[in-house]
Each structure stands twice: as structure tokens, then as C-alpha cells.
């Protein structure tokens, strides 16, 4: 199990970016496509041109292309190619107790893995029994297969709250259709 966790952490590191955006401080983001589409939280990306730092330390200027404050989602584009990308999964079949992992840059730490379980599944949010801190926002919550099931967004009553991946896919669909997302 140790080896598997280490491998999972390494894979997550490659697909999680740091986002610096004005006074919002440091947040996290998920590489969604090899050509530079990044998904994060609206509350992490507060400026039109956030700075994106890849796992290899490379700093790039990003461009905010869509932002949905209601869902707390944002899409950012960087000029890149052949990036490792996160694999998206589905959150709906998961049961309470399912293993989950979060990756991100909490409170000044970089590339931090958290391990936990799904707490309950009935809400519009995914609720996870996992230790998160503010800089985890925008980063991936993945299942035991390493597939993204949500975007870590908030901490309420000690629980990690994530926007389910289904909502992220809807958001990206509206974006692809050219519907205004703001």
C-alpha cells in the first residue's frame, strides 16, 4: 500500500499546478488537457493573468478564460504542450468510506498529499474526512484509482468540501460551446 501511495503522490504532483493571483495568495490547479487547460476555483483565480508554476518549477503566465463564481470554478489557459493531464473519474458511484487523496499547496507548503475518506455523499458537495488547508483550494480530490472526483474548494467544520467532477465537466462543456461563463 505504501508503494501505491507514493506512486499516487508522484502522479498527482505532475498534474497539480501552483497558482499565484494577486492578493488571493497561493492556490492550486489541475492540468485538464495536455495543451494547457487548467481548472481551479474562482476564489483562487482573481486576476486576468495569474502566474502558473508547474511541478518542474517552470513559471508561466496564464490567461483566465472562464470564471463561475456560483460554482466556484475557473478555467485558465497556459501556452504549453504535452503536459501530463489528470484523468477524470465519476463521483456518483462512490460510497461513504471510499479512499480519497488531495494534492496541493496548503498554507505555504508545496506539493503536499493528504489522505482521507469520503465522509458522506448526499450533498451537492463532496464531503471528505481529510485534513486540508487554504492553499489546497483549486487542487484535485482523487479516488483510489487516482481519477479526479472533485476540486477541493472549502473547509467547513473540519470537513473538506469539493466541487464534484460532474459539475466541472458541465462547466467545461459550457465553455466549449462558447456560452458565456463569468
Amino acid at each position: 500500500m505504501n508503494t501505491a501511495l507514493i506512486a499516487a503522490a508522484e502522479a498527482l504532483k505532475q498534474v497539480t499546478v501552483q497558482i499565484h493571483s494577486g492578493r488571493a495568495g497561493v492556490g492550486s490547479g489541475v492540468i485538464w488537457s495536455g495543451d494547457g487547460l487548467i481548472v481551479s476555483n474562482a476564489h483562487v483565480v482573481r486576476s486576468p493573468y495569474p502566474e502558473i508554476i508547474l511541478a518542474n518549477g517552470k513559471r508561466l503566465k496564464g490567461t483566465l478564460i472562464a470564471r463561475d463564481k456560483q460554482q466556484d470554478l475557473a478555467a485558465v489557459r497556459i501556452e504549453a504542450s504535452h503536459l501530463d493531464t489528470a484523468q477524470s473519474g465519476t463521483s456518483t458511484p462512490l460510497k461513504p468510506g471510499s479512499l480519497v487523496m488531495a494534492f496541493g499547496h496548503p498554507l505555504g507548503a508545496t506539493n503536499a498529499l493528504s489522505l482521507g475518506i469520503l465522509h458522506r455523499t448526499t450533498e451537492a458537495w463532496l464531503q471528505a474526512d481529510i485534513r486540508l488547508a487554504p492553499g489546497n483550494s483549486g487542487g484535485p480530490l482523487v479516488d483510489a484509482q487516482g481519477h479526479v472526483i472533485g476540486i477541493n474548494t472549502a473547509i467547513v467544520g473540519g470537513l473538506g468540501l469539493a466541487v464534484p467532477v460532474e459539475a466541472v465537466l458541465q462547466f467545461l462543456k459550457r465553455l466549449a460551446l462558447g456560452q458565456a461563463v463569468a
Binding site: T3, A8, K95, G97, L99, A144
Partner: peptide, 20 residues
């Protein structure tokens, strides 16, 4: 990706389902 994690995950969900 990694089966020990899936096994672990299944074990926990089963324990929750059974006791729940």
C-alpha cells in the same frame, strides 16, 4: 492505477455499509 489502494477503499466502504 494501483490496486492496494482500491482494495483498501473497498474494505472501508464495505465496513461502513455493513455496520451502517
Amino acid at each position: 492505477m494501483t490496486s492496494p489502494l482500491i482494495d483498501f477503499s473497498n474494505r472501508i466502504t464495505e465496513a461502513v455499509e455493513q455496520s451502517g
